[in-house]
Design a protein around this nucleic acid. Structure first.
Lengths: 201, 201
DNA sequence: GTTCCAAGTGGTACTCAGTACCGTAACATG
DNA sequence: CATGTTACGGTACTGAGTACCACTTGGAAC
C-alpha cells in the first residue's frame, strides 16, 4: 500500500513542497522588486520564514531558485523522446526534423504558464550571470538531444551539429520573442523554417 | 613627443604588462596543477608576488584570468570585419558565407598559440562555471556578428539566426575538436560544409 | 499511546570572493 | 629636485557557500 507507485503525499512531503514553493515565490518577488544581486539569501530566508541553512538545503545556490522549473522541462523532453517515432535518422535534415519536434515540446511546456516565463525571461536577460546559467541548462538539453540522435543511428558529427543547430534556433527565438512564451515558440518555428527553407532552395 | 600615436612603452607600462603576464602564468600553472576552484586568489597573489588587492586591479574576478586572451580574438574579429567585402547580404546563405569567414578569422587567431589554447580548452571543459563564462564570450561574438550583418543589409530575423547558426558550428567544433586549435578550425569548417551541404542538396 | 528512527530544521562558526578605503611608494614631468 | 599622478598593498567589511551540531518533528512499529 504505502509502497505504491504513486504514494500518497505524506505530511512531510507536503510541508517540503510548501516551503519550496514559499522560497521560490519570495525569492522571485524580491528579485523582481530590487534586482538579483542586491537581494541576499539572508533576506529571502527571513521573509520565507526559514533559516539560511534551510535555503541551501532546497537550492544549491542563489541562482538555482531562478531555474526551479527546469525539472518540468526535462520531464517534458524525456517524455517527448519516449514518444518519438523510432525512424532511422541518417542525414542532417532527418535529424533536424526530430530535433525540431523535441524542441517544440519543451517550448510548449514553457508556454503552459506564461506568467512565470515572462518573469523568468526578464530576470535572466538583465543579469549576465543568470544568462550564463541559462545557457548551461540549454547546453544540457543539447547533450540529451545529441545522445538521443546518436542512439537512433545518427552519425556523431551530424548529431552534434544537429543538436547545436537546434540550440541556435532556440537562442534566436529567445532573442526575438520578447518576454512571451508563445512568441518564443512561434519564433523557434520560424527559425527552423528559415533554416530548412535554405535547405529546400 | 610623448603624445605620440605609438608612444614608447614607458617603464610603468612595461611593469604593468609584466605583472599582468606573471599573474596569468602563475594562475594557469596553479589551476592546471590543482584545479580552478581549490586555488585561492590569495595563493595566486602570493606566488605572483603581488597583493591580493592588486590581483583584482588587473582582473575583475578569478575567472577573468582564464579568459585573458579574449582581447586578441576581439581584435582579430573586428579586423576581419573591417576587411570584409561590403557585398549585399540579403538571404541566409549569403549571411552564413560571411559569418563563416569571420568565425574562421577568430579560430585562426586562436590557432596562433596552440599550447595556450590546449590548456584553456581543458580548463574550461572541466569546470561548468568556466564553460558558462566561455559561452558568454561566444554570445558576445554572436552579438557583434549579428550587428555586422544587420549593418550590411541583412534582415534582422535572418541576421539573428545566421549569427546563432555560426555559434552552433563553433560549438560543434568545440565539442569535437579535442584540445587542438587547428582541429577545432577544421571541425568548424566541416560543420559549415555539412550545414551548407544540406542547403545545396 | 509509547518508543524509536529517520528526516528536516536552524544556529554557529568558518573560508573565500569581491569591494571600499587609505596611506605610501614609484614613476613621470617640469 | 619638487610636484602631481598612478600603482600598490594592507585593513576591514559584506555576502555566498560549507561543515558541524544539537534539536525537533513526522512516520512506523510494537
Amino acid at each position: 500500500m504505502s509502497a505504491n507507485k504513486f504514494p500518497v503525499e505524506s505530511l512531510r512531503d507536503r510541508k517540503r513542497r510548501q516551503t519550496r514553493e514559499r522560497i521560490i515565490e519570495t525569492a522571485f518577488a524580491l528579485f523582481m522588486e530590487r534586482g538579483f544581486d542586491v537581494v541576499t539569501v539572508d533576506e529571502i530566508a527571513q521573509r520565507a520564514e526559514i533559516g539560511r541553512t534551510t535555503f541551501f538545503r532546497y537550492f544549491g545556490d542563489k541562482q538555482e531558485v531562478v531555474f526551479s522549473t527546469e525539472d518540468d522541462f526535462l520531464r517534458a523532453l524525456t517524455a517527448a523522446m519516449r514518444d518519438a517515432p523510432t525512424e532511422p535518422l541518417q542525414d542532417l535534415a532527418q535529424a533536424l526534423a526530430t530535433s525540431r519536434r523535441l524542441l517544440l515540446a519543451i517550448c510548449t511546456e514553457a508556454a503552459r504558464n506564461p506568467g512565470h516565463y515572462a518573469v523568468y525571461h526578464r530576470l535572466v536577460k538583465q543579469h549576465p550571470e543568470l544568462e550564463d546559467r541559462h545557457t548551461r541548462k540549454t547546453r544540457h538539453y543539447a547533450d540529451l538531444l545529441e545522445k538521443h540522435l546518436i542512439d537512433h543511428g545518427t552519425p556523431p558529427a551530424t548529431a552534434v551539429l544537429a543538436a547545436q543547430l537546434t540550440v541556435a534556433c532556440y537562442q534566436a527565438a529567445w532573442r526575438l520573442g520578447s518576454h512571451d512564451a508563445t512568441a518564443v515558440l512561434r519564433e523557434a518555428n520560424d527559425a527552423f523554417d528559415l533554416l530548412l527553407g535554405a535547405t529546400a532552395a
